[in-house]
């Protein structure tokens, strides 16, 4: 089994992220997601869509200034979680 890392740094690709997550899970891959920058704006919707199909963390430094106090289902973290995701992922895509 391989791990796909998805960096979500934009709020423009909700459908695409969901499509890739579901396809990756169907193919038997692990999926880890890190959300930062404008990506936090769709964090709650995305986590609602994804459910338990991916391990999700987000950059609290990005979320707080945008008025987002919590992304349900995701770990409130820092760039360390992104570094860990990139380190562990076999492949990385950016949305």
């Amino acid at each position: 089994m391989s791990t796909l890392g998805i960096l979500v740094n934009s709020d423009k690709y909700r459908d695409e992220v969901l499509g890739v997550v579901q396809a990756a899970k169907k193919a038997g891959h692990d999926v880890k997601i890190f959300i930062m920058d404008d990506g936090v704006l769709l964090g709650n919707e995305l986590c609602g869509d994804i459910g338990t199909d991916a391990e999700v963390a987000y950059c609290d430094h990005s979320a707080q200034p945008k008025g987002i106090k919590e992304i349900k289902g995701a770990l409130a973290g820092s760039q360390f979680q992104n570094a860990t995701m990139m380190h562990e992922a076999d492949k990385v895509v950016v949305f």
Partner: peptide, 13 residues
């Protein structure tokens, strides 16, 4: 944000 992320990525050695 790119520079901030790049710096953060050094945290996993």
């Amino acid at each position: 944000e790119a520079l901030r992320m790049a710096l953060g990525l050094t945290l996993a050695d």
